[in-house]
Simulated assay, not measured.
Amino acid sequence: MDRKTFIQKTTLGILLSIPAVTILGCSGSDDNGNSRPDPDPDPTAKNCVENGTSTSVSTADNHTHSLSVSKEDVSAGATKTYDLSQSADHIHQVTLEANDFQALKTSPNSSITKASTSNSGHTHNVTVSCA
């Protein structure tokens, strides 16, 4: 290949590649110039509606009770009274109100603490938080 042919072919290659690069460089996406996708959400993020709740019940008179609050109850958001598990031959109750469920949904890193009903001369503090 002589010099003249080399220059002609190189010039033609450059002239053809400019429109191709321009067309490929323009995309129809509306990512505002951000070619990186949004990062994945934090897999450890707390979310009562997705993951349900975790609860703890304080010890009183050398025993404790347990409570389970489902993600369906959180989603429904309606006031509900729960029976704590039976322990030491008695049961306590605790009521979570609509505003408690709303607080768990809007502030998943917070927790709600309520006192149970009194039974056998004592109460328990019940803490509900998002899992």
Rank of each mutant, 00 (worst) to 15 (best):
D2V: 09
K4R: 14
K4N: 14
K4S: 12
T5N: 15
T5K: 15
I7R: 02
I7S: 03
Q8S: 05
L12N: 02
L12Q: 08
I14L: 10
L16K: 01
L16A: 13
P19Y: 06
A20V: 12
L24P: 11
L24K: 12
G25N: 11
C26G: 11
S29N: 05
D30K: 07
N32P: 07
N34S: 09
D38T: 12
P39L: 11
P41C: 03
T44L: 14
K46E: 11
N47F: 06
V49N: 03
E50Y: 04
E50P: 07
N51G: 06
G52M: 05
S54C: 08
S56N: 12
S56A: 07
V57E: 05
S58N: 08
A60D: 11
H63Y: 02
H63I: 05
H65L: 15
S66T: 10
L67G: 07
S68D: 12
S70Q: 09
D73I: 05
D73C: 08
D73P: 08
S75M: 15
S75V: 15
A76V: 13
G77E: 07
K80H: 04
Y82F: 07
Y82A: 03
D83N: 15
L84N: 02
L84P: 06
L84T: 01
S87Y: 02
I91K: 10
H92S: 00
Q93F: 06
L96D: 01
A98H: 06
N99R: 04
D100W: 02
Q102Y: 04
A103G: 04
A103C: 02
L104G: 00
K105T: 11
T106H: 05
S107R: 00
P108L: 01
N109L: 03
S110L: 04
S111H: 04
S111P: 07
T117H: 07
S120P: 01
H122Q: 07
T123P: 04
N125D: 15
T127I: 00
T127M: 00
V128T: 00
S129W: 07
C130A: 08
A131L: 06
A131Y: 02
